Computed example of a mutant assay.
Amino acid sequence: MTTPAKVIAAARADLGMREDPSGSNVTPITKAFGKIPGYPSNGYGYPWCAAATSMWCKEAGLKANTDYPHTAGTLTQYSWARSNGRWFTTPKVGDLVLFTNNGSTSGIYHVELVEEVSASSITTIGGNTSGSAGNGIQGNGDGCYRKTIARSNSRICGYVRPRYAGSTNEPAKTWDGKSYPGHFVRYGDTGAEAKAVQQMLVKFGWKITVDGDFGEATHHAVKTFQKNHKLESDGVVGPDTWKALAAGPPKTTPPKATTAPQPVVKVPAASFTRVMKLGDEGQDVQAVRQKLIALGYSYLKPGLTWGPMMTVAVMDAQARKGVEVDGQVGPNTLKALGL
């Protein structure tokens, strides 16, 4: 019998899949789903987010158009859900989350599979997307990625719920704001869970801003806290770290941080005198990385070297800013990025 876990396993197997050639929309998923007349690349070059969720459901054993909508169209997915009583506004693991570009169902344009659900966010796996959604845009990417976004994101239109074995329509339990939320909280996360981590760190004496943004200062504080408490010092708040934080500082001594948080490194002014690309190093590359991180590409980390994921971020930003998508940073891209 098919469960959400089986569909999620099928999706996880495709993480890292990329279009070949880049920008063509041609992937193993479109080849498996089939040709659609009128599209480039012999009918395989169509937007493939809905085809991806369809193939994952099919591979897991769900019955097409009975248990889920087998289609390459997001609006068709919505219509199936409404017609079959499978349209919901509260997420559950295994749902298909539909995104809109105008706040209504008429603007539905992208879909992803819900992998995890917390009180404040959902973690998704999607095709034809990118590794970030900092500006709210979910679709029009080069591959299959995982991301975590706030449930309050204005682009979320609603959820299509396939018919799984033994499934119910009970909404996910609301997080109580104190207990471990059921998933890792880490660098780049935003929302109530990140804020709760910051509040617990403050009780231990850390001088960090409680703003719900799990950034560099919070990441450093967590790593040092873990080291001081003989936990794996990876900066990721899992059940053991959450338990230690929730216990609070010893009652007999005042809370005191053993190490001061490191300030965010400010990038020196860079002189942009070259076209930057994969493999380049230097202060100018660092400045572009910092700008991309500020724009929401949180899977990048500060550094002086241009690696493959930076090329992905640059191409995605170029597409969204309306400049030539070549994966290199020259005068036009610098201007579009505000540098």
Rank of each mutant, 00 (worst) to 15 (best):
S22V: 15
L278G: 11
A165L: 13
P261E: 02
P28T: 14
G126C: 04
K227I: 12
H219V: 07
S54Q: 06
E112I: 01
Y44L: 02
G182P: 00
V114M: 04
C49L: 09
R86F: 12
K335Q: 14
I36S: 06
K301N: 13
T273D: 07
S22L: 12
T129S: 05
V264L: 15
G34P: 03
A221M: 01
A217W: 02
P268K: 07
A294N: 03
E116G: 01
D67I: 11
L113T: 00
T311I: 10
N169S: 12
T105N: 14
G126K: 00
P249K: 09
W48G: 03
G103Y: 13
V314R: 06
Y297W: 11
S106M: 10
T273C: 12
A192K: 02
I36A: 05
W206N: 08
H219G: 15
G61K: 05
F214E: 08
T66L: 13
P37E: 06
G282H: 09
T209G: 08
R289W: 01
R163I: 15
H183D: 10
P308V: 15
N65S: 08
P162Q: 14
K35R: 08
K58N: 02
H219L: 06
P254Y: 14
A13I: 15
A81D: 06
A257M: 08
T311H: 07
S271C: 14
M276T: 05
W206G: 07
Q226H: 02
W242M: 10
G182I: 04
E116A: 03
S41L: 09
L295Q: 06
E216P: 13
G296S: 07
I122K: 10
Y180L: 05
G45H: 05
F225C: 09
G248L: 04
T27G: 08
